[in-house]
Design a protein around this nucleic acid. Structure first.
Lengths: 346, 346
DNA sequence: TTGTATGCGTTATCAC
DNA sequence: GTGATAACGCATACAA
């Protein structure tokens, strides 16, 4: 038992071939006669050798077969959000051709830089930054310092970092214009989180918003309703939307509420029902994302539909491009307006 | 530009020290005088060296700082399930002390073994198998063949593979007994998926169930109601529960429906509302998991509460134990009964 | 088609 | 506290 694990050299020796020949048998990078292949495989079998050690191979080839995705939040929280989940699906698909695994990295909330595995301590070929903000931005420098390709989703990390963007501001403006065209003037907003802490409450100045998506969508809404109050939720969930809705419906009542996500909008609708208001007759509600909100039927949200899977896919393709030395493309995806049954004329 | 990236030897030379000393400066594994540390750090800075290459380090140390989690499903689907998400949270926390990242691996549905990164082609220190079934079980052999420690969550992979189990059968029996004690005799079940395909429909024999959790919970329910019909959902979601509920409420109507997850139970409740039934007066509904179902209020499900975070945490601790050569513990977590307001006497 | 030689970048060990 | 040396296991250029 204390015997050391067989290496490819051991296999080669056992098979009576050179290490390079044995290597080729496993990598398939050069033709090998059937006879030798057989012998090598048999030798491997008899020695309990199950293939090249990925650690050694990655040192040699410079490829680890791993792409890191960097999150701000706790991993669980990150995935409960259907938009993130879809993004991961798309990323995973786009990465399949190069056979790269996805490594989840969580930017240390605690500041215990030592213990946290980070872009620098783990073998990766590329990194995808999701939900970029001021803090995460420094990771870009770290990664690029090591020559690791980086792609940013919905964030800006400088000129030469490929990004996958969404037309958040324009899209939110589109919804807002729809609402205005219905005659609404008393409008309130429910926004996504404004910082990593996830504090709830009314937002004064949008400079206090540290998260790009939140800020951009709010600006789009303010393009149409400059003075409408905005209430920040702690995260994108129905329950947060419910809480926000309760607050917004308790004072002087708006006739429309624009939420920055469908989950939040669903919560706002519940708050309205709770207050005895009918949607859309008494209150119009809009969302953002176009995700399927489990259990929201019969409501169909008026919302901007984004293709989160495509977002992940585009990021994955950019990664693949960089890894094969092609120029990666920055893309901006656009949302499409979907009129549901949650908005009506005033 | 074409110049090669600096190595630790370059830094050492620049600083006028030996490579081993430079190494120690970065690893902190041995005392170094302040003066030399300064010089090394300065040299690194000037050469743009940002620390040891993880690939080379992992070859040398035998540690990659990565723990793989193997899923059956698409990544996105895997995480939308709140139980999985919580499990990942727990795992991530338990792994934090050793600073390991989490690598998502999806067992290839396609059979394209070549392209898919798998336990054998990627540098990992340990693997966690989630939602074990017959297919995934072979992965255990693969991993163990390479000397990679493996932990299984809710599955059995043989005597010497540590597992984190849940008392699924006992727990489901507990709920069933509660329902029976309320006087119910006409009962139906809604189960989790029975195989990777996720087909809907009534289940005949439980030998056709390939997923351990589903089979165990069903057995617990059958311990109390041996002849109750069981309808399999395609996955654990409110919408699937709604579909199943519609089917079960369209024929001879049961007075109670036992669902194998809270999400499914929530859907069943919607189906009941849709059919004009009051819960729990006309129909008792139970769930499983004890997760927060976003937007289900004012209902509080009668359910078995499992600590999914603890499950992930236990798996993580087992991994850590194995990595430091301690004997890992197999644990069985137990669920606790929670009486909500969705069950009532017949 | 097969073999030989070399180095990928690091760190553990030991001696000083 | 510091330095010399030897692996770690493999893949590739090149020669045969």
């Amino acid at each position: 038992m204390g015997t050391r694990r067989a290496t490819i050299s051991d296999v080669a020796r056992e098979a009576g071939v050179s290490p390079s020949t044995a290597s080729v048998v496993f990598s398939g990078k050069a033709p090998v006669s059937d006879a030798t292949r057989e012998r090598v495989l048999a030798a491997a079998e008899s020695l309990g050798y199950t293939g090249p050690d990925p650690r050694a191979a990655s040192l040699r080839t410079g490829r680890a077969g791993i792409v890191a995705v960097l999150f701000r939040e706790r991993l669980g929280a990150a995935f409960r959000d259907p938009v993130n989940a879809a993004t991961m699906d798309g990323l995973s698909d786009a990465l399949a051709p190069i056979g790269a695994g996805i490594l989840l990295l969580r930017e240390d909330d605690t500041g215990t830089v030592e213990a946290a595995p980070s872009l620098t301590s783990v073998p990766i070929d590329a990194a995808v930054l999701l939900g970029c903000n001021e803090i995460i931005r420094s990771s870009v420098e770290t990664a690029r310092g090591r020559g690791i390709p980086v792609v940013v989703i919905e964030g800006d990390a400088g000129e030469d970092v490929p990004k996958v963007m969404l037309d958040n501001r324009d899209a939110q403006r589109t919804v807002a214009e729809h609402v205005r065209s219905l005659g609404h003037t008393d409008v309130s907003f429910v926004t996504l989180r404004t910082d990593d802490g996830g504090r709830r409450g009314f937002i004064g100045d949008d400079t206090e918003i540290l998260i790009d998506v939140t800020r951009d969508r709010l600006r789009g809404a303010r393009d149409v309703f400059p003075d409408a109050p905005a209430y920040a939720a702690a995260d994108s969930s129905i329950d947060e939307g419910l809480a926000a809705g309760r607050v917004l419906l308790s004072g002087p009542r708006p006739t429309a509420i624009l939420a920055q996500s469908d989950m939040l909008a669903a919560g706002v609708i519940r708050a309205a029902e709770e207050a005895g208001l009918r949607v859309p007759e008494d209150l119009s509600v809009t969302g953002f994302d176009g995700v399927v909100v489990d259990g929201l039927a019969p409501y169909v949200l008026t919302t901007m539909v984004q293709d989160a899977t495509a977002k992940g896919h585009a990021a994955g393709e950019a990664v693949v491009a960089m890894l094969v030395d092609r120029a990666p493309a920055s893309v901006t995806l656009t949302c499409t307006f979907r009129r549901g049954n949650t908005t009506a004329a005033r």
